[in-house]
């Protein structure tokens, strides 16, 4: 199965800019389906970006993060060709991990 995570990490001198897009329903547990039954909460709780053995950015998310979440940030200390490891876990215990090369 294709990864749920799409990442673009681009190095610009000392600064690496990271954009990530994840496929996830991010159900709040407050919405009903057309039959009137509540769709149970299903959302990513933690998303981690690791580079050279260090967590550079950790996101803790609640249900108010939009469906198919997007996040953007920048960090220092990495160079072109370094690996950036991205992983998430959701409230049902599911998880996914991918590794991107910094371009």
């Amino acid at each position: 199965m294709a990864s749920s995570i799409r990442v673009r990490a681009t190095s610009n001198g000392d600064i690496t800019e990271v954009q990530a897009l994840i496929q996830h329903p991010m159900d709040t547990g407050l919405v009903k389906d057309p039959k009137g039954e509540v769709i149970p909460a299903h959302y990513i709780q933690q998303l981690t970006f690791e580079c050279n053995g260090k967590d550079v950015f950790v996101a803790d998310w609640g249900t108010a993060v939009s469906k198919d979440p997007y996040v953007k940030f920048s960090f220092k200390g990495a160079k072109k060709g370094d690996d950036l490891k991205i992983s998430w876990t959701d409230n049902k215990g599911a998880s996914d991990t991918t590794t991107a090369k910094i371009a």
């Binding site: 600064i15 967590d55 550079v56 803790d60 993060v65 953007k72 960090f75 220092k76």
Partner: peptide, 20 residues
């Protein structure tokens, strides 16, 4: 609370995301 981000040393203090 919608989202909380931990910023490591060396990470630029800024974030963009999409909320409900």
């Amino acid at each position: 609370l919608a989202a909380s981000y931990k910023i490591a040393e060396g990470t630029i203090p800024g974030v963009a995301n999409r909320l409900k």
